[in-house]
Design a protein around this nucleic acid. Structure first.
Ligand code: DGT
Ligand code: MG
Ligand code: MG
Ligand code: ZN
Length: 579
DNA sequence: GCCGTTTTCGGCCCGACTGTTTTCAGTCG
């Protein structure tokens, strides 16, 4: 099995956990975690970089030692340091860290004192009241451990899709804003950064009496459990399991608190180090020169004092945004207002829930200039995919509809299946009648990388191909991406004038943020497609825009920001290099 | 283990909440 980036990252994470349980130097532990994060953030496979003879020490947080460890891991399939660590400590110990309230020191104590190496053994020991015999552990801690283990086995620590968290988040925010004494309130954390999933909700609040508000928020009707509640922070668990952190600060600290609570953690650390460089200190209360406040009422003030422009939350992942800001090199990010239409739409002709006319009306309501209709092709039988005859009839329907419409153009397309051999599911005679062809892979998802890449490249060589929908096929939390050599896919996209989709379905978001960023950097045109199966799903567009922003994209990087005339030119046949 | 317009050695972000503690360690954000 070839070593993937996520294998390397996971191995470093596990190693860091074991080292920490073994009481290693915390900064060394941190170094392994930083390296894991760097590797995970790469769109390109590390093994491709090594094969190309590239120097891994160019990557942040990777020095000579770790570069060597990675190279040997990729070569042998074993991370020697991890093997050594599991000789010292049972690997199962790291599972204890999933229990809220158990960190490396307690895991170590449980192992040394009671020989515990698994969650089950810990539950037994707690039920037998043996945990409280250890120094540092009392009755309450023992009870909490049992409670948290129960919770852990009930719902494993899965993350929530951003779109699924929105309703709860916004209603909770509105409720908090109505509390007496609340001045401002915002949802911060990964939610504000628009990550595709959120681990919890983080809400920052300003108030003249923070302690009173911190207590008051525990009285929301959906609170299942108050995990902790102090003078300035309260942590809740809602019915349904979602956790909420609420941080309340005085007015003057709102900007600094919002910055802190928006994160990411690594962005915070990077900015705090920058503050140190000025001889200052940055925390959630402000930016300080000894006891003098330098900034803090707004985020802008904090960045400005550090000689930086305000950085959009979507970029705050410590992926080069501070350096870009410093060089005045931040992109002007695409905005929902930039979108002029949707090019990936389904109707009742296949598995959509609304007719062609209804989808067109919904597009008009959204103020769009164009709507591209792209039902499935015949190979997708469960979706009642179109054959040439049925597609022909749909094209006639579109002609009739276009006659009637004066403020919206319906474009003719089809989401044509890319078959196992890379050929297309419908004959050229019908594809030639479309404004553009979308290609998508829906079957044989398990092909090996070489074959899968070859298949996609073959389809991309078709002169009519213009968009590849959901290129990796991943479903968040459910299905891994197909194995692809994205670098070659990007090259083919450029050579053949093909746009790669950021599919805006909340569980797809495919390409993801980092791959879309790499595509753009390579010179590829992106397109944000809702893949709407109903009028309401046209509003998924904003989820696609969120990820486009996380990918550092500007409007000019995205096909469906173009006016219809320009769009038609870009989609015109004969633009393929070969044809 | 990494890294350098303060450093190639000596730093590495900074603070809240809880429980067990008799002055603070551990965990988490
Ligand atoms: N300075 C600093 N800030 C932190 C640290 N941990 C968390 N934060 C800040 C930045 C985070 O975005 C914010 C909320 O913490 P969370 O644990 O909820 O993380 P976040 O929301 O980013 O991701 P999530 O989706 O919840 O896993 O608190 C830390 O160790 N240091
Ligand atoms: Mg969070
Ligand atoms: Mg949180
Ligand atoms: Zn589709």
């Amino acid at each position: 099995m070839p070593v993937r980036n996520r294998d390397i990252a996971n191995a470093f994470e596990t190693l860091a956990d074991l080292l920490e349980i073994g009481d290693a130097n915390p900064f060394r532990v941190r170094a392994y975690r930083n390296a894991a994060s760097t590797v995970r953030d790469q769109s390109r496979p590390i093994r491709d970089m090594l094969a190309a003879g590239e120097d891994l020490t160019e990557l942040p947080g990777i020095g000579d030692d770790l570069a060597g460890q990675i190279a040997r891991y990729v070569e042998t399939g074993h991370l020697a340091r991890l093997d050594a660590a599991t000789d010292e400590l049972p690997a199962g110990l790291t599972a204890l860290l999933d229990i809220n309230g158990i960190g490396p020191r307690r895991a170590h104590a449980l192992y040394e004192g009671l020989g515990i190496t698994s969650v089950d053994e810990l539950a037994d020991a707690a039920r037998q009241k043996r945990v409280r015999t250890l120094s540092g552990f009392g009755e309450k801690t023992e009870q909490r451990i049992l409670h948290e283990i129960e919770r852990l086995v009930r719902h494993s620590p899965a993350r929530t899709l951003l779109a699924d968290a929105e309703e709860m988040a916004e209603s909770l925010l509105a409720w908090i804003r109505r509390r007496v004494g609340v001045d401002q309130a915002t949802i911060a954390g990964s939610y504000r950064r628009r990550r595709e999933t959120v681990g919890d909700l983080d809400i920052v609040v300003s108030a003249s009496d923070p302690a009173a508000v911190s207590r008051a928020v525990t009285r929301h009707e959906d609170v299942a459990e108050v995990i902790s509640s102090g003078e300035t922070r309260t942590t809740l668990r809602l019915r349904g399991g979602l956790q909420v952190d609420i941080r309340v600060v005085p007015h003057g600290a709102y900007g600094a608190a919002m910055h802190y609570f928006t994160g990411s953690r690594d962005h915070n650390i990077a900015l705090r180090r920058r503050a140190q460089g000025h001889g200052w200190k940055l925390n959630e209360y402000g930016l300080f020169d000894d006891d003098q406040t330098v900034a803090g009422d707004t985020e802008e003030s904090v960045y400005a004092a550090l000689s930086l422009p305000w950085i959009p939350p979507e970029l705050r992942e410590n992926r080069g945004e501070i350096e870009a800001a410093e060089n005045d090199d931040l992109p002007t990010l695409i905005d929902a207002q930039d979108i002029r239409g949707n090019l990936h739409t389904h109707t009742t002709a296949t598995d959509g829930k609304a007719s062609l006319e209804e989808m067109a009306e919904a597009a008009r309501e959204r103020g769009w200039e164009y709507l591209g209709i792209s039902d499935h092709s015949r190979a997708v039988r469960v979706a009642n995919g179109l054959d040439a005859d049925r597609l022909t009839r749909q094209l006639d329907d579109i002609d009739v509809l276009n006659e009637r419409l004066d403020d919206l153009v319906i474009l003719k397309s089809c989401e044509v299946d890319i078959l196992r051999d890379g050929s297309l599911d419908l004959p050229d005679t019908i594809l030639e009648r479309l404004d553009y062809v979308i290609g998508a892979i829906h079957s044989d998802l398990a092909l090996a990388r070489r074959a899968q890449t070859q298949r996609l490249l073959e389809a991309m060589a078709h002169p009519l191909m213009r968009i590849i929908a959901h290129p990796t096929g991943r479903l968040i939390g459910q299905r891994s991406p197909i194995a692809l050599d994205l670098e070659r896919v990007f090259e083919a996209a450029i050579d053949n004038h093909i746009a790669l989709e950021i599919n805006a379905q909340p569980k797809r978001l495919d390409l993801n943020d980092q791959d879309a960023r790499a595509a753009r950097d390579a010179g590829v045109m992106l397109v944000i497609g809702t893949d709407a199966h109903s009028p309401a799903q046209l509003d998924f567009m904003r989820h696609g825009v969120d990820q486009a922003r996380r990918a550092w994209l500007s409007a000019s990087d995205v096909l469906n920001t173009r006016p219809v005339g320009e769009l038609r030119k870009l989609l015109a046949p004969g633009r393929s290099a070969g044809g």
